[in-house]
Write a protein that binds this DNA or RNA. Structure first.
Lengths: 201, 201
DNA sequence: GTCTATAAGCTGATAGAC
DNA sequence: GTCTATCAGCTTATAGAC
């Protein structure tokens, strides 16, 4: 149900996607069951299938809205701005995504871990195009001597790895840090220091 | 079957664990099926269950051997050595693990993503203890002014995040880089440069 | 729109022949 | 040790009453 018409349809579709996100992000597509999603949503299983034609369709709906959310922070990186400030702002937005949308991060991680069977096109298309474009921006910044010369694709991978780690491995991070820690706030400070040093010419 | 006695038992147990690793690392515990494992192993499903009492037992056997492999590189970090060299050697060993044992990395990632239901004790026990111990070593290095002052736990998280990313998100890394790239070799050089800059006093 | 009932196929595990 | 046959329970999806 891509475009629900009534308010009740809108609301139920949202409830279902919210529950589906919870379950798919934890167990992956294959490991998730409609029973679990129905229980989390507080709806009957046939009712789920009244709003979405299949389990696949629920997952697909989640993935479709995911990619844009996921790439927006990188899209906002502006060649006209100050290079270090732009990259640090990108890192900050990504850490905020990890903090505020950890389930989306884990849904994405699950999909890539499995070899992206339902996202391959988007990865090889939109995502690659955007990364190549922003890598070119970074190369120009390096040519102008405004940030250190580094392989731009790997620089972008670092931002992804370091920020998404705090969402995807949240359980481990909290277990290792122990209580009385705010992982995301500490990560924000630490990653700002890391990228400042890394980018300094 | 923790201790197989005959050669044929030994060999079949290994074949099964090898196949189980392949399937569990891709689909997670819940998403993997004995049918898949049996097909990859080239054995019948009842034969799998002759060697291991249950699906759980296969997964457990994989996790048990995993943690040691996973922590060994950090264990080898020696307080008596040169701090920067020791940390760079740690990063190098971790990148080699990602290159040579990507399925083990993904098995671990799957387990943590799901909240570590079958590994919680090891994470909160052995793993946390080792990390705390090595964090203390790093603090002493920092106190001696031999590396930059940074939050040691987050420094270790960075090593994990940056190195494991190349195994866990391999599909995405290769899609973005395109052909004619050796992700692990490039990552080795890049991460050495990154940590040199980060640790410089 | 939502429910109960149920179909059809899959999944983990066992029985028993060889 | 390995196989075929099979069970009980689960899982996705549909039918049809309300």
């Amino acid at each position: 149900m891509t475009r629900p018409r009534t308010r009740i349809q809108q609301k139920n579709s949202e409830t279902i996607l919210e529950a589906a996100l919870e379950v798919f992000s934890t167990y992956g597509f294959r490991g998730a069951t409609l029973d679990q999603i129905a229980e989390v949503a507080g709806l009957s299983k046939p009712n789920l299938l009244y709003y979405f034609p299949s389990k696949e369709a629920m997952h697909q709906a989640l993935l479709e809205r995911l990619l844009d959310t996921w790439l927006d922070p990188l899209r906002e990186m502006d060649e006209a701005g100050d290079p270090v400030a732009e990259i640090l702002a990108y890192v900050r937005r990504k850490i905020e995504l990890s903090r505020d949308y950890p389930r989306e991060s884990r849904l994405f991680a699950n999909e890539i871990l499995q070899g992206a069977p339902r996202m391959r096109e988007a990865i090889e298309g939109d995502l690659k195009r955007l990364v190549d474009e922003k890598a070119a921006v970074m190369i120009r910044w390096m040519d102008q001597g405004r940030i250190a010369r580094l392989p731009p694709h790997h620089l972008i991978f670092s931002v992804w790895a370091l920020t998404q780690h705090y969402a995807d491995f949240d359980m481990q991070v909290r277990a290792v840090l122990g209580p009385d820690h705010d992982p995301f706030s500490e990560a924000g400070d630490y990653l700002e220091a890391l990228f400042r040093k890394l980018l300094a010419v």
